[in-house]
């Protein structure tokens, strides 16, 4: 684990705790005065935990999907996974309004998993075609799912509230409303245990088979882990695009694709990137906030373009 990356992560965590509409100074934290402590435990710490876990989860999800589809431009946002999760929440909201956050998450999970399975089936049929074609198909596929969701929302008069999950936003994260995000912890832990297997998946089906790895079972496990992470993230903070795409590619350029070694680096970089996007969003028109979905989309989108041009070199 590179030390400077870890140091940057710690500094970003500290900065994230300090930034906010209510000013908070170091000495107030250490003196544990009532107000400062309240802000910290009710809002800032939950927000930090959510940011870190979402960043870790999304970047790990991205790299797993990339190994399963063998394409560097695939992540939940470019494979229909996010859109399917949103559709799932929408259907849960209208069909069973009383189901609660956990129930909604389960809907999102099932939809995300089903749509990932369909997407992987599509990608496997066109495996040897252009690498940029795969995310384009994913975006189209996501567009179709999104259109269904919007039509459905329009039909049920909840188009407005749907905007809430369209855009990742950490400002609504407070104590008591974010705990589902902890599901990312076991998902990421399992991913790390299976990191070598996911790397073997990335070598392709026949190479995996000749190394004695069951391709279907490992890919299915990967997709389940992705679905858990994506649905937990969408239900807590909404859709955060590009983290899962940009971070694994940047890390691969420097450290390679051996997940057994790079997964911790990817996780830490993902968390750092999301922290940067969030701090940026909180400062840009202080004391108001820009949702992180916008800043991550902006910063990530630019990096995505850079990577495409570098990749085409």
């Amino acid at each position: 684990m590179p030390l400077n990356l870890f140091a940057m992560f710690i500094v970003l965590c500290a900065a994230s705790l300090m930034v906010g509409a209510q000013s908070l100074a170091w000495y107030e934290i250490f003196s544990l005065s009532g107000d400062a402590w309240l802000i910290l435990t009710v809002s800032r710490l939950p927000r930090l935990v959510t940011l870190v876990l979402a960043g870790v989860g999304l970047s790990v999800c991205g790299v797993i999907l990339q190994h399963i589809t063998r394409n560097k431009f695939v992540e939940p946002a470019t494979s229909g996974g996010l859109d399917a999760a949103k559709l799932g929440i929408l259907i849960a909201l209208t069909m069973m309004p009383a189901i609660g956050a956990v129930g909604q998450m389960l809907f999102a999970l099932v939809f995300c998993l089903a749509s990932s399975l369909v997407f992987v089936a599509i990608v496997r049929r066109i495996q040897f075609s252009n690498t940029v074609l795969v995310p384009v198909i994913g975006l189209m596929y996501g567009g179709v799912l999104s259109a269904i969701a919007e039509f459905y929302a329009y039909h049920n008069n909840i188009l407005q509230s749907m905007q809430g999950w369209l855009l990742g936003d950490f400002s609504k994260v407070i104590e008591g409303r974010y705990e589902i995000i902890y599901l990312i912890v076991p998902a990421v832990g399992l991913s790390y245990l299976y990191a070598h297997r996911f790397t073997v998946l990335g070598m392709g089906e026949s190479m995996a088979a000749s190394l004695g790895l069951s391709y279907a079972a490992t890919a299915a496990l990967g997709l389940i882990l992705v679905a858990v992470t994506v649905s937990a993230t969408v239900i807590t903070v909404g859709a955060v695009p590009f983290i899962g795409l940009v971070i694994p590619s940047l890390v691969a350029l420097r450290y390679g694709d051996n997940l057994g070694r790079t997964l911790p680096i990817i996780a830490l970089s993902g968390a750092s990137m999301l922290l940067i996007c969030d701090i940026f969003g909180r400062l840009i028109m202080y004391p108001f906030e820009v949702p992180v979905g916008l800043t991550a989309g902006g910063i990530g989108g630019v990096l995505f373009l850079v990577l495409i041009f570098k990749g085409g070199r």
Partner: peptide, 27 residues
Amino acid sequence: LRQAPGFNLRLTVSELVAFGRFPYSRG
């Protein structure tokens, strides 16, 4: 050993060779 035209993982030579041990070590 098949031809691997779609192989796009960035691995070093020794990392790749290490995956030959996968059937025994599983990582």
